[in-house]
Design a protein around this nucleic acid. Structure first.
Length: 829
DNA sequence: GGCACATG
């Protein structure tokens, strides 16, 4: 066998690591870096006999890399070369190279930040930029700079902006190696694709079948598109020698094997795959790749705390990776269903997981690492602040973090379980309920992909799954349940139970699912509004897409749902009973009184509500609400009407008007205008409403004295003097002053009663002259004046002439100053 | 007619 291309850079690589703490190795697929590099570094002096740890993104890759290397040394796995993946470790006392999955490194660092006994950490396939790899690198980097200056970090990747990584690693040297694959001819579309991608894919497949030999790998975004293309191909009766095989994650082992294994001589295969075939699985014998250019990715929304799947265009790096699948045996061809122009506008690389993921696990990991603020670490892409904030809030809600950000003892235990913090919390909460064993099963069940697949009437009920898991050995539902997956889930749940020392209690029933899940998803409780339609505690609407048993449950815990559109779709949920809900959420229930004015009954109505977020669980009328709130509601009701509904007496109106007049003169006096009184009901009227139950009671209020309370004691004393209700005129009559116009109070008086009064009477301590309406003996208006002296001197004589004609019997003296004032026709003698 | 891929 020819030497692998990687061999040529190995001396350089050794040299680089001799002098630097970090290095970046860029090598195309097929260069052999995964198996050659760890072996080549084993005897380097800086290693001082310590171990090399190499990270792989997948368990399968970790095991096979270890197996391949062991084989090269003529050993068994577990001797010099070992591997470590979750619940499966093959490491012996002599092991010097451990191939591990990425999450394992985080666990190793958390239990020993100094990584004692380890001389180098190699990050393989780093271009995939998984969350675990990013976290592992950030932690390792900090460990290196604080505790382990001698630790070597090597980043290996296919296509990557190597300079960026190198810069992050203190300008680490970058080495490059060519790949070893055959040339693949790339064919773009002439013009931009129109219509459905499935149609174009099907056409392309037909064309390629005619034009090329060998098997074909077709990349589509998801199972739906795969099945649509499959049915487009079906009527074409392609050939008995052409096998069409779908390939995606939620497919049985047998179906996947059909797609993966090379076909018999003379047969050809068309594999319709998701991005699973881009990295995780290798399809044998492919010479033609057809790429739809789309992939489905999940995106986390910090706003709603939910994850949604969206279909996005692939990056250039992904497209190249897909194309490379056609060049493993010999020269190949790749059809890209987009134009060359479009290709130039595609992003170079996909979005790193850390930028679009649920960061709750990361936030817990960081808190356990003792660095709740991610800014203290070095990142290629720092965790986005909104998602990180949402994650921290969730962890506080789960009791894993203090408000201040530190890890609680509960959080410490959650971090050790190897589950999403939500599910870890559920497991620990379930233990005192004697449902810990079932919670372990549920937690693992929900961490894996759905065990129910392809069933036509696939429901959204968690209970269906847990029951299927419990009777997975019975074959009655073969074809609908993934038994292989069930076995793995059961085994993993058992490991989890054993690590916690939990045994089944006999209390396990599928009906307990809702209660258990409620502790994991406190923010996803849904209340039925109508059949199949729900209201989430967050205030969002949610729907069950199809009519099913769950559609009429009063309450659901929505485990999986998206946040697309105005209403979320619920993909997985469990019912929960109201009493369970009230019990499980004791500390989050909001008990509140709603006290409000009821326009219909013209009275205050009070209700007590028990709320969980936006969901009102119970609402009962209460007869004696908080007095302050009752009065406030009453005031609000009154404020909607005019003040006329108050029991205004003549006295009260008079007081209001007199004070308004004085306010006009001197702002020390309160403003009692309608507008101001209406706006300030809460200040002046509210204190008197405590005994008032309804509108009728209102009529008994002593409005005059209530208004008087707005005056100071001094003002009350001054009121009569400054704004007298009556003025005594020369005739001896007490004439009321009209204050209805605060600018000009008026006195309406018969002219004859004013004889002898030289000047206009003044009020407000002499500051304001009254406006005098002088009247005829029959009380008809004769003259208006604010200057009585001038009137007597001038106008009186004209007026007198006229009055004398109309009222000849009356007394009309020539000198009004010396005349006797009278309220009769003539003064008594 | 349907929810991608991983992992402690």
């Amino acid at each position: 066998m020819n030497p692998l291309p990687i061999q040529s850079v190995l001396p350089e690589l050794k040299e680089a690591l001799l002098h630097h703490q970090c290095a970046v190795l860029v090598a195309e697929p097929g260069a052999g870096k995964t198996t050659q590099v760890p072996l080549a570094l084993l005897d380097e002096p800086w290693l001082q006999g310590r171990k090399i740890v190499m990270l792989e993104p997948r368990r399968l890759a970790a095991r096979s890399a270890a197996r391949y290397m062991a084989q090269q040394r003529g050993e068994q796995v577990g001797e010099t070369i070992g591997y470590r993946v979750k619940n499966d470790t093959r490491v012996g006392p002599k092991t010097r190279i451990e191939v591990i999955t990425e999450g394992i490194l985080t666990r190793m660092l958390q239990s020993d930040p100094a990584l004692e006994g380890i001389g180098a950490v190699i990050f393989d396939e780093f271009h995939e930029r998984s969350l675990h790899a990013d976290v592992g690198l950030a932690f390792s980097k900090q460990s290196q700079s604080l505790l382990r200056e001698d630790l070597r970090l090597l980043i290996m990747s296919a296509t990557i902006e190597a300079e960026e990584v190198a810069a992050m690693l203190d300008d680490a040297p970058v080495l490059r190696s060519e790949g070893r694959s055959y040339p693949v001819e790339t064919r773009y579309l002439e013009k931009q694709l129109e219509g459905r991608v499935e149609t174009a894919v099907a056409k392309s497949i037909q064309h390629a079948l005619q034009a090329h030999e060998g098997s074909m790998l077709v990349f589509l975004p998801g199972a739906a598109e795969i099945h649509r293309v499959e049915s487009l191909l079906a009527p074409l009766q392609i050939s008995q020698d052409v096998i069409v095989a779908p390939l995606y994650g939620n497919l049985s082992q047998e179906a996947q094997d059909l797609a993966l294994t090379p076909c018999r001589h003379g047969q050809r295969k068309i594999v319709l795959a998701t991005s699973i075939a881009e990295t995780s699985l290798t399809v044998e014998g492919v010479t033609v790749v057809i790429d739809s250019g789309l992939m489905r990715v999940s995106r986390f929304s910090p706003r709603t705390g939910m994850t949604r799947l969206t279909t996005v265009p692939v990056s250039q790096a992904s497209a190249d990776q897909r194309r490379g699948r056609a060049g493993r045996l010999g020269p190949g061809v790749c059809y890209r269903l987009w134009t060359e122009q479009e290709h130039r506008h595609k992003p170079q690389a996909g979005t790193p997981e850390i930028r679009e993921a649920d960061l709750a696990p990361l936030a817990l990991e960081l808190a356990a690492w003792g660095v709740p603020d991610p800014a203290e670490l070095v990142w290629l892409d720092p965790p986005p602040a909104p998602a990180y904030r949402q994650a921290r809030e969730l962890l506080v809600q789960l009791g894993a973090l203090h408000e201040s950000g530190g890890l609680t003892p509960h959080g410490k235990r959650l971090a050790e379980l190897g589950l999403h913090p939500r599910l870890a919390h559920m497991v620990l909460q379930a233990v005192p309920l004697e449902l810990g064993a079932m919670a372990c099963e549920l937690a693992v069940l929900l961490s894996e992909r759905d065990i129910l697949r392809a069933a036509k009437d696939r429901d959204a009920d968690v209970r269906t799954r847990i029951e299927a898991l419990w009777r997975a050995d019975r074959a009655e539902q073969r074809g609908e349940i993934d038994f292989g997956l069930c076995r793995r889930i059961a085994a993993e749940a058992k490991v989890l139970q054993q690590s916690l020392g939990i045994r089944p209690s006999g209390k396990e029933t599928a009906a307990a699912s809702g209660l258990l899940l409620a502790s994991a998803y406190p923010d996803r409780i849904a209340q039925r509004r109508s059949t199949g339609r729900f209201l989430l505690s967050s205030g969002r609407g949610a729907v069950l897409p199809e009519l099913q048993l769950l559609s009429n449950e009063p309450y659901l815990v929505a485990v999986e749902l998206d946040d697309v559109g105005s209403e979320s779709r619920i993909y997985l949920a469990a019912p929960i009973a109201e009493d369970e809900l009230l019990d499980a959420y004791q500390d989050q229930l909001i008990r509140e009184q709603e006290v409000a004015w009821d326009a219909q009954t013209q009275s205050v109505k009070a209700r007590e509500r028990i709320r969980l977020g936006a969901i009102v669980i119970k609402e009962v009328p209460i007869s004696s609400p908080d007095p302050d709130r009752r009065v406030a509601a009453f005031v609000q009701g009154l404020a909607q009407d005019s003040l006329d509904s108050l029991p205004w007496t003549r006295n009260a109106r008079s007081l209001q008007q007199r004070v308004n007049f004085l306010h006009h003169v001197d702002k020390d006096w309160p403003d009692m205008s309608e507008v101001v009184l209406q706006d300030t009901l809460a200040d002046w009227l509210a204190p008197h409403l405590y005994e008032v139950k309804n509108r009728n009671d209102l009529q008994r209020l002593p409005l005059t004295s209530i208004l008087e309370e707005m005056l100071t004691w001094e003002q009350r004393r001054q009121l009569e003097e400054w704004a007298p209700t009556h003025i005594q005129v020369p005739s001896g009559s007490r004439i009321p002053v009209d204050y209805s116009e605060p600018v000009s109070p008026t006195l309406a008086v018969r002219l004859q009663e004013m004889f002898g009064l030289a000047d206009t009477p003044r009020i407000a301590k002499g500051r304001v002259p009254l406006t005098i309406h002088l009247l005829s003996p029959a009380s008809r208006p004769v003259q208006v004046t604010r200057d009585l002296a001038s009137f007597w001197r001038n106008t009186y004589f004209e007026v007198k002439k006229d009055l004398k004609g109309r009222y000849p019997k009356h007394y009309w003296p020539d000198d009004p100053m010396t005349a006797v004032p009278t309220n009769r026709a003539k003064p008594r003698v």
